[in-house]
Design a protein around this nucleic acid. Structure first.
Lengths: 164, 164
DNA sequence: CAGTATCCGCTACGATACTG
DNA sequence: CAGTATCGTAGCGGATACTG
């Protein structure tokens, strides 16, 4: 619907008095943030990765991406098209046929996306281990806290009893 | 939600009759998808990128990340901690001091995150151009469609008038 | 300072129905 | 087939208040 791209800026990285080595602006309205949020959303990564293999039709994408609704696929594709990452080709035949493929810009992104996916695949076991370790720690700490509470209460009662 | 299928996972990439070169499972419940969604969310990328510079305290992070609420920062940090990407160190002093830093695992991710950010910075102008081009196209097409509609209506009325 | 707890609005998203 | 339009809902995320 609306779209707040009224900002003229071209590079928004060097303003605050308090910034340091960070090479990238963290401000909310920064264009980089916006683009990043768009690219790194739930479906875009999937679509980009799939389209790198070859161009695909709407329904092919739909079938390949488990759990996506037409709505979200259409939305995602339009966003990617708008950002110039994906091109849309309508073949005037019946039944209608629409092909999606990565633009050169999109293809250049894919290299990075692939790296991210590869990293995730490579480390998913470590992450799984870390998660269970964390979950165990939380439970243990909770139990310890409960015992501590009981102990204190008992002590307080002891003091009370002694003071009478 | 439900998950009735007894998957022989361990590696979940090769089941359907219709799969191709894609090296990564697109299914919703796949662990890779879940991890990706977590890493690539609105704040995680920021936090990881910031922590690569040096370890930071809670409030330092809060101040550096424009627009984040305590709630989201705490949430994000706990998620990252749970996934073993960030370590949390409590210094028992007053006032309390808590340092966050990347674990080796988190540091290895950062390399990839950095690549993503760099790509975005590099191509933000191209994307901006693509966007305005797209927006113009949409407006033009809309206007054309409206004129077409008017034309047809006029023709229809003409036919009606002639047929009377 | 470094959080957690509570409330709550907004919108992202899915399900469904309809169009060219 | 390739979408758009409409509606209902769940949960993301912000604001505020409270704790250790």
């Amino acid at each position: 619907m609306e779209d707040g791209t009224s900002k003229s800026l071209g590079h928004c990285g060097d303003t605050d008095d308090d910034y340091d080595v960070l090479q990238w602006d963290t401000r909310e309205d920064c264009e980089v943030r916006q683009i990043l949020d768009r690219i790194a959303d739930k479906w875009s990564l999937l679509v980009i990765a799939l389209l790198d293999q070859r161009s695909l039709r709407f329904t092919e994408l739909r079938r390949k991406i488990d759990g996506i609704s037409q709505r979200m696929l259409a939305r995602t594709l339009r966003h990617l098209e708008r950002d110039g990452l994906v091109s849309r080709t309508v073949h005037p035949v019946v039944p209608p046929r629409v092909d999606y493929e990565l633009t050169p810009l999109g293809a250049s992104l894919h290299h990075t996306v692939r790296a991210l996916v590869t990293w995730t695949e490579k480390h998913q076991n470590e992450i799984a281990v870390a998660r269970s370790a964390y979950d165990v720690r939380v439970v243990v700490e909770q139990e310890a806290a409960e015992k501590e509470a009981v102990r204190r209460e008992a002590m307080a009662r002891g003091v009370l009893a002694g003071g009478r």
